[in-house]
């Protein structure tokens, strides 16, 4: 649900600002225009731009030496590795799921389809803290599998598997919800033609479907990855915060911050902010490609 607003726009604006400003019927008095611009840009600067600038300003407040020292420190490196590991597992799993779900939903008719789509969106409407809580209830000492896991000395909660599971949960819908509308819009005629001409199902998928949806797929993967690397609430509940072992990058930021080690906290945070900027740049590029294709 949360990312509804983030889906790939498939339409192209028919008018530009010039068309609106050309006619007095669709134009405001200039004082209204300037007031609206000042208010909305002021709001934008205050709530979005300033926090972004603050991350980098605070990170470099004590100079580049302190900045790099915070990034190469062993606990920071361990947290970077764990974050990458969680993303490397979560993103491909949700990618395969997204493709399977989109194939079933977009290419076939069956009962309860809308309900299935709602269920797929479910992780977006659940608070991240609740997402973490459910894994505590399943794998925790008092949970369903807690006693069994303890007997067999398998650690899921407060260990890496728990972090990976929580990451998979919060990033679950990203790829599916990009692909489903895209593949529905494309219909199934092209694949059917390929099959009739003698292609196997896999050939039709690799040669016809995949090239058709590659940009939407990439879009979903990028958003999925950004969330996987940045997730805080859900991972925080299942992590146990063991330094060097179960800390992801965002959790490492929290620990440093709570120790009043602000320069280091913001230095590590700046890595995540850079990731966000790269994500936005790629996203904008894909959107422009999509509009060009359309």
């Amino acid at each position: 649900m949360s990312a509804a607003a983030a889906s790939l726009p498939v339409h192209v604006p028919v008018r530009t600002h010039r068309d609106y400003q050309a006619s007095p019927a669709t134009r405001e008095a200039s004082w209204v225009r300037w007031t609206l611009l000042a208010l909305s840009l002021g709001f934008f600067a205050l709530f979005l731009l300033l926090p972004l600038v603050a991350v980098f300003a605070e990170a470099l407040r004590k100079g580049w030496g302190v900045y790099f020292a915070a990034l190469v420190e062993p606990d920071a490196v361990a947290s970077i590795k764990l974050t990458l590991l969680a993303a490397v597992i979560a993103v491909p799993l949700n990618l395969v799921f997204g493709i399977a779900a989109a194939w079933a939903i977009a290419k076939f008719e069956f009962r309860g389809k809308q309900f299935l789509i709602t269920l797929i969106d479910l992780p977006f409407s659940v608070s991240p803290v609740i997402a973490g809580l459910i894994y505590v209830l399943v794998f925790g000492a008092q949970g369903w599998f807690g006693p069994w896991l303890q007997e067999h000395d398998v650690k899921i909660l407060f260990a890496v598997p728990g972090i990976v599971l929580a990451t998979i949960f919060v990033t679950f819908p990203f790829v599916a919800r990009e692909l489903i509308p895209l593949m529905e819009a494309q219909g199934r005629e092209e694949e059917e033609a390929a099959i009739v001409l003698g292609a196997s199902g896999w050939q039709a998928f690799w040669r016809v479907t995949l090239p058709n949806v590659k940009w939407g797929l990439l879009y979903g993967v990028i958003l999925c990855n950004a969330r996987a690397m940045g997730e805080f609430g859900a991972v925080s509940v299942v992590s146990g915060h063991i330094r060097g072992l179960t800390n992801t990058l965002p959790l490492h930021v929290e620990i440093l911050y709570n120790e009043y080690n602000f320069a280091a906290a913001f230095a590590v945070a700046s890595l995540l902010a850079l990731l966000a900027l790269v994500t936005l740049a790629l996203k904008t590029y894909i959107e422009s490609r999509q509009e060009y294709v359309a």
Partner: peptide, 11 residues
């Protein structure tokens, strides 16, 4: 959407 919430929080 892209900035991790913890980073937004401390900023």
């Amino acid at each position: 959407f892209a900035l991790p919430t913890a980073v937004a929080g401390i900023a």
